[in-house]
Amino acid sequence: MIDTLVIRDLHVSVEGKPILRGVTLTMNRGETHAMMGPNGSGKSTLGLAIMGHPNYEVTEGSIELNGEDLVEMSPDQRARAGMFLAFQRPIAIPGVKLADFLRHATTNVRRPDRKEGEELIPMRDFRKELKGNMEQLQMDVEFARRYVNDGFSGGEMKRAEILQLAMLQPKFAILDETDSGLDADAVRLASESIAEIGREKMGLLIITHHDKLLVHNPPEFTHVMLGGRLVETGGIELANELHSEGYDRIRKAYPEADAQNQAMLEKEDAQPVG
């Protein structure tokens, strides 16, 4: 049976303010979906809500992985169930080496029933696998000895996220602007890597402003978010249209959602709503 992620009528609030106002989306493993939309439309909120960020409260609707409700699960249970989010702004963990961080993470995700304190996967096997993945991503092995995201450049952070994607092999991965802050070469490398690691093996939900990532990962489905709603869904041609024409047509076609989008942008302060 193919793995399926079903999001139904999802409403999400942050500090009591509604951000998502009824998102419905079905993804099968192996498919690539693009999520597009102007700033403040709620794209990042969807990713964080799917992973269970404590500040993002699901007020209505459901998120089901193979029929199992994720909403009641803690973020780590969701990760162990096969969900992954590549962060738009990855977090630094001072004093913790990337290799050590990933060994523990990989163990937990591969052995979802592992209890705290139980053995980690053997160091030898892990190192070999990590090295292989780093070579594929053209990363210096020294990188694994650095503290997680601590002092990383924007590009290094995004590559570290892709490395984690490669090691954790989730069923579904949400990539939140994994192409932002990268130069053209880096975007191409990131796009190729994602295609090699995830395309057709995972369900990919690619959140992006640009189309570069989509060149190597042509989406079967393109969704447009505006004012916390998916206002249109189409194929790759929709992504191409939005890239060349912008959101004017969408904004005019859905004035109510557009108004809500504008209102959310104005309220947006330090909180990443994206």
Partner: peptide, 22 residues
């Protein structure tokens, strides 16, 4: 930071232990 680690499969307690060790 705790949420980030949890998204990678760490339990909350494991995440805090890791942060403290770091």
């Amino acid at each position: 930071l705790i949420f980030y680690a949890q998204c990678r499969g760490y339990t909350r307690k494991e995440a805090i232990q890791m942060i403290v060790t770091g």
